[in-house]
Design a binder for these strands. Structure first.
Length: 106
DNA sequence: GTTGGGGCCGTCA
DNA sequence: CTGACGGCCCCAA
């Protein structure tokens, strides 16, 4: 496992229940502001879905990933709903559930 | 709403 | 080293 991946997973763990973050935000939290793409790559190889909430990560449009790593979008959607996140056609309202980076950058 | 192009980054073959 | 390949992003038509 690389440092990059570790940081990404750590960042993902910071997302509070009932909220979601974009790949770009995760990239920033991880310390790689422009590595949104690499983030997706890392998440695909998610080591343990139990502790890393990859289902709380969506793209800048609020859409769920097409090729979710386990169980597909349906599983991702199921988990979000279970947390109280309203999901419509594999899409979430970022202005409602999106996180604010400033709340994580102390 | 839709494409399409350019740029970005880390991994792996 | 080089070149592909993504759970991406942004802006311009």
């Amino acid at each position: 496992m690389t440092d990059f991946e570790r940081k990404v997973y750590e960042a993902v763990k910071l997302i509070p229940e009932g909220f979601v973050a974009t790949y770009g935000q995760i990239a920033e939290l991880a310390g790689y502001p422009r590595a949104a793409r690499a983030v997706g790559n890392a998440l695909h190889r998610n080591p343990d879905e139990e502790h890393v909430f990859c289902h709380r990560v969506v793209n800048s449009n609020g859409d769920l990933a097409k090729s979710f790593g386990f169980g597909g979008r349906d599983e991702q959607r199921r988990r979000l709903i279970a947390e109280g996140v309203y999901v419509v056609n594999y899409k979430v309202d970022l202005s409602e559930y999106g996180i604010n980076l400033n709340d994580f950058l102390k």
